[in-house]
Write a protein that binds this DNA or RNA. Sequence first.
DNA 1: AACAAAATGATATACGTCTATCAAAATTGA
DNA 2: TCAATTTTGATAGACGTATATCATTTTGTT
Lengths: 353, 353
Amino acid sequence: MVNRQPTLSDVARHAGVSYATADRVVNRRGNVAAKSLARVEASVAALGYVRNVAAANLSQSRTYRFVMVLPEGTNAFFGHMRDVIEAQRERLLPERFDLQVVTSPAFDPALLSETLAGLDPDMLDGVAVVAIDASEVVEAVQRLRGAGVPVITLVSDLGPDHRDGYIGIANDIAGRTAARMIRLAHLTRPAVVLPILGARTARDHGDRLAGLAEVLGDHTLLDVIEGQDRPDLVETKLSDALDRHPEITAIYSMGAGNAGLIRALDGRETRPMVILHELVPHSRIALEQGLIDVIIDQRPEEEIRQTVARLRDLADRRPPAPEPAILPTIYVKDNLPPPHGAASDMPPEGDHP
Amino acid sequence: MVNRQPTLSDVARHAGVSYATADRVVNRRGNVAAKSLARVEASVAALGYVRNVAAANLSQSRTYRFVMVLPEGTNAFFGHMRDVIEAQRERLLPERFDLQVVTSPAFDPALLSETLAGLDPDMLDGVAVVAIDASEVVEAVQRLRGAGVPVITLVSDLGPDHRDGYIGIANDIAGRTAARMIRLAHLTRPAVVLPILGARTARDHGDRLAGLAEVLGDHTLLDVIEGQDRPDLVETKLSDALDRHPEITAIYSMGAGNAGLIRALDGRETRPMVILHELVPHSRIALEQGLIDVIIDQRPEEEIRQTVARLRDLADRRPPAPEPAILPTIYVKDNLPPPHGAASDMPPEGDHP
DNA sequence: AACAAAATGATATACGTCTATCAAAATTGA
DNA sequence: TCAATTTTGATAGACGTATATCATTTTGTT
């Protein structure tokens, strides 16, 4: 059996002070003599007192008010992420979580910093933002943090000193993983790899490319195609490259606009090995139909779950719960999650009769 | 802003009954006239009342008492799983979770059912068991469930009618995934695949083998080696097979005893492609050193997290939270999680001053 | 020693639920 | 219609914490 968890009254009794004084210590209200402070802290340690967060929240009728700032637009990945957040929002409402989604035009640091500046720190317990690594954004984040609002970055990071946490994958590792898969498919022959990205200036794309190059070894890496994350551009540029370089054995697409990539491949009778990023409806279909081989995904469901957990721990001012790292997940045709947007937790039947 | 969540008092007022009557309805205490019952239920629906679980647990000084029944022994996988549970146990103690681990000798249905029979239903709010699919076990589980204790299966399942949930991977999908990886490594040449498993009678191994065969297509599948999950046996049998079949291009090990597999490969100058199951210290090292190519893992951290969440929902008698499916995870050398047993994704930062 | 300032203690209320008790009202049966 | 039964209402205490108030004690200063 578990012994009853110690309460703050237990701590006060053990320290030989009143409940009020113990409360002054643990809630840092000041006006406590150094001696009392030390005794209370000693008792906290001795008894292993941990604040009962449920009781604390109840007493304050606390609501966790979190804002998630996502890029605006119709991008399939962030569209899915918004769906995931919406599902969580409804689930978490009765547990007193108020999740709000705010959008800001993609790739625009000035507008993003304005959006962040428009958030009222007094109405917030935490912010998660898909960051753009620019000085205005860093400043806007620092203003929030200075006002006591914890900020974590989501999917796209700022420097480690400028946020209270990062939930997302390491993009160099994603690139290395892609390279490893390409090597696995070229155990007995040389590879000629065509990299496609949105823009050389996009930091996450650059990191992926760097990781790719590191692990690719002696295999050949062609010049990158910049597709601006636009399907039409990707389609024409890729078609052209495939015509000019029939020796290509693998394609790694680091950005978005993959609907165009799929269209470019669909007509051809033979195709190279293909790896791309993010499991979204059109990439899923392409994988199921055998038009591509591998999808590297960052599991947005898991990212949102961890984001809420982390924001909550930050709001409660307690050490973050250890969570499994979010690693680039490798999907092939056979280990895809069940199709419905909001994932189900059970294996798709039939396996265990 | 969020409107305040309705309380049971709000429901009572809306229904025009006293708090006591509303309470009688929602907590099914009986002695309520049909008319009152209907009105309260209508008000619950109208206001969207959801019980505040935190307040309820506080009022009852509730502790969630869960037991996890694992196979006994030094198996690296279950050893790791126990470490993971222990880490969670400490974390969850202040939140009034009492996680107990009970072990039972591996592969012994009779002893497992005895172990289950030895659990006192009155001292328990839920059980998770690594099941053995045998009638005695099913009966023991049914006795627990009949006594009001929810039981979920972990890693190894019973039939869907005999438990309140299953947390683990679908093993046929794991086998299919392995086959897909083998195919990816044989895009331009035929594969000759050597399957290794613990015993043909082990259901999860059988499922993996079936999945493998389904996806392997025209490639050659050799006769299985039975290694009894024992490193020494695996080592000698594999060495022998490699000597007799130099044409082998891939090995898929579905069971344990992989330390022997690694020893058998370590001496050789060339080796086939190798896929095996479960990320444990020795398999991790082999992957990092390039002795094997792929590890298929079931993420025990994630399984334990979901297990606790599911048991809690069952104990609270509320619909299970949607959780992302646990899919066979593909690890290559580059997307391994951070090495420390209990994974942490963040440096243990200082929080807000 | 006298006084202000700082520290402490005692206590009350609130959060939303569960549980229990007792009295009052409504319904049922004969 | 009267008694027995069922149903309902009102209310109080407990869970552990946060917050506030006010009186009292201790400390520091000159």
